[in-house]
Design a protein around this nucleic acid. Structure first.
Ligand code: MN
Ligand code: MN
Ligand code: ZN
Ligand code: ZN
Lengths: 142, 142
DNA sequence: GAATCAATTTAGAATAATTCTTGCTATTGG
DNA sequence: CCAATAGCAAGAATTATTCTAAATTGATTC
């Protein structure tokens, strides 16, 4: 994933990437901490981590940055039940397994060749734009 | 699904059903409303519908009733993104498709014989207690 | 049937994640 | 440089949900 500093774009005359995202210091740092520790942090987790590099950043800005990163599909928003949203920079098609013993959220990939229409009895004419699969359970090492 | 009035249990000496649920008027009415119109209403939707039969019921009680019905697995709580929770009395294994054109949430069943482990590359030793699959898209009748 | 006693209900207050508002600053393109 | 647009920060507002505390219910025991 290309992250261009605001003022040195490969796209002359614009600091925006192809999708129109202006990569400001705040957005860059938010994205950087998401890549650095891929443990599905909450917005507040991100806020605390980003403050190391940008001590004056506000929580509202972290929310703004996360929102724009999600809109531009650099980051996925992950919602378990009604808990605070978590953020995931893994762009591969995958779903999430919440180990309730450790609290860890694991990325889970689909087995190769699996099509959604193969396993679900979708309504006729359904065009799926977004799929969210969340699992809860435990990792028993028995 | 059996719904027993509080005072006439088949279990002598107790008004509770096998799982320990005391079916009060409020819980009965909340459950009845969910069965009567299976459109995945929010807690507030349920509140408004239940007031027809129990004009003095409070929203807190509706939340309490829904919580206990979910705990006792008579009702499923359905969460799309960070929208208000919705409630579903369909106990068959199924998932949800949100048609963003109409706003309708459809129940979607799995094709027969599909096992989760067949399609997902689960971590070794993972014991899944709960699965939540949410789809967003449109029903184009083309 | 009255006393007991825990479970339930209710109204309203509190909570907390998120969003909004507003004024300021930075960046862009000309 | 200038004007216009976009982004940021601080704090207020929103809102679904949960909590608190007091009243009520109703099942069980006397
Ligand atoms: Mn956290
Ligand atoms: Mn509704
Ligand atoms: Zn992930
Ligand atoms: Zn359903």
């Amino acid at each position: 994933m290309q992250v261009k500093p605001t003022s040195k774009s490969a796209n002359p005359g614009s600091s925006e990437d192809a999708s129109g995202l202006r990569m400001t210091r705040q957005r860059q740092e938010v994205y950087r901490v998401l890549l650095a520790q891929r443990d599905h942090p909450t917005a507040n987790d991100v806020f605390m981590r980003v403050k190391d590099g940008l001590p004056h950043i506000s929580l509202a800005t972290v929310y703004n940055c996360l929102e724009v990163l999600v809109e531009h599909r650099l980051v996925r928003q992950v919602n378990f039940e009604r808990e605070p949203s978590r953020y995931c920079p893994n762009l591969e098609e995958h779903c999430h397994f919440h180990d309730q013993h450790t609290g860890v959220i694991h990325d889970v990939k689909f087995k190769p060749g699996v099509r959604l229409g193969d396993v679900l009895d979708l309504p006729n004419g359904a065009v799926i734009e977004d799929v969210e699969i969340n699992l809860r359970g435990q990792l028993s090492l028995a």
